[in-house]
C-alpha cells in the first residue's frame, strides 16, 4: 500500500531559558495506509511532541513531513487547520468534549468547520458506529467515561479522516471500558482507517501491529509485533515500573 505518512529527519527544539530542549532529534518514520501503530515511551521521551507534529498541531524545527502526498511541514496555519479537519481525527485522554452540549452537537464540530451543510445525519451515523445512537441527545455530564470517549471517537471519525490519532485514549478509563475502546479502534482499523495510538501503557501498545518506542527524542525500537517482541516490551515495562517514575494516577494495572 501507498505511504500515508513519511517523516524525514524530524527535529523539534524548544528554548527554555538558556538551554535548548531537544524534544525530537532526527526522527524518521514511514507509515502505510491501514496500519495500526502505537507510539510508546516514558514521559519526556518525545512521544507527545511527535503526536502533535503528526497531528499537524505544530511544525517541526527541521525536517519534512509528507502526509497523503502533501508536504505539510511547510504549510500555513490555515492550511494545517484544513488538513487537520479533513485527514486527522483526534481522540484525547480527557475526552475534551464541549460541556453542556449534546453528543450529536459535539460530534458535528469537525463538519461545522468543514462548512458542511448537512451535519446531523452524518453525526448520528458516527454515533451509531460507536454504539451510542441512543445517547445522541445527552450531554457529556450525563455520560460515563467510556461513553464520553466513544462520543469523542465518533467526533474523530465523523469527517471520515484517513488517520485516527489517539493520545492515551484509555488513560482515564477502567480496564474493561478501556478494552471496549480499543475494540472500537480495531474495528475502525479493519475498515481501513490508519490508527496511531500514543500510550505509555505496554498492554495497550502491544495491541497494535507495529510499535514505535521512543526515548530522549529518538526512536529506539520500530517494528512489527510478534510474541517475542511483546514479551520483551512487557518485560521492559516491568523494569520501568520498578523505577520511581511518575505514572498517571489512572494508569491501569498490567494484565499479561
Amino acid at each position: 500500500m501507498a505511504d500515508l505518512i513519511r517523516i524525514n529527519q524530524f527535529t523539534k527544539h524548544y528554548v527554555m531559558g538558556e538551554t535548548i530542549v531537544r524534544a525530537l532529534d532526527g526522527v524518521n518514520i514511514t507509515i502505510k495506509e491501514g496500519e495500526f501503530i502505537s507510539i510508546t515511551g516514558a514521559s519526556g521521551s518525545g512521544k507527545s511532541t511527535l503526536m502533535h507534529l503528526l497531528g499537524c498541531l505544530d511544525r517541526p524545527s527541521a525536517g519534512e513531513y509528507w502526509l497523503d502526498g502533501d508536504l505539510v511541514s511547510h504549510m500555513s496555519d490555515k492550511q494545517l487547520a484544513i488538513v487537520r479537519n479533513k485527514k486527522i481525527g483526534f481522540v484525547f485522554q480527557t475526552f475534551n468534549l464541549i460541556q453542556r452540549t449534546t453528543a450529536v452537537d459535539n460530534v458535528s464540530v469537525p463538519l461545522f468547520y468543514a462548512r458542511q451543510a448537512r451535519v446531523k445525519e452524518p453525526s448520528l451515523r458516527a454515533l451509531e458506529r460507536v454504539g451510542l445512537g441512543h445517547r445522541a441527545y445527552h450531554t457529556p455530564s450525563e455520560m460515563s467515561g467510556g461513553e464520553r470517549q466513544r462520543v469523542a471517537i465518533a467526533r474523530a471519525i465523523v469527517a471520515e479522516p484517513k488517520i485516527i490519532l489517539a493520545d492515551e485514549p484509555t488513560g482515564n478509563l477502567d480496564s474493561r471500558t478501556g478494552e471496549q475502546i480499543m475494540q472500537i479502534f480495531h474495528e475502525l482499523n479493519r475498515a481501513g482507517v490508519t490508527v496511531i495510538i500514543v500510550t505509555h501503557e505496554m498492554a495497550v501498545a502491544v495491541q497494535a501491529q507495529r510499535v514505535i518506542a521512543m526515548r530522549d527524542g529518538r526512536i529506539i525500537e520500530d517494528g512489527g509485533i510478534d510474541d517475542a517482541f511483546r514479551a520483551r516490551m512487557l518485560g521492559q515495562e516491568r523494569t520501568a515500573a520498578s523505577l520511581p517514575e511518575r505514572s498517571p494516577p489512572m494508569a491501569r494495572p498490567l494484565q499479561v
Binding site: 498541531l57 487547520a81 487537520r84 479533513k86 483526534f90 475534551n96 464541549i98 469537525p110 468547520y113 467526533r155
Partner: peptide, 16 residues
C-alpha cells in the same frame, strides 16, 4: 482555552 484548542484540533481556523 482548552475548548479553543479542541476546536482548533478539529479544524477550526484562526479566523473561525
Amino acid at each position: 482555552t482548552r475548548e479553543i484548542g479542541v476546536r482548533m484540533a478539529m479544524g477550526a481556523q484562526r479566523a473561525d
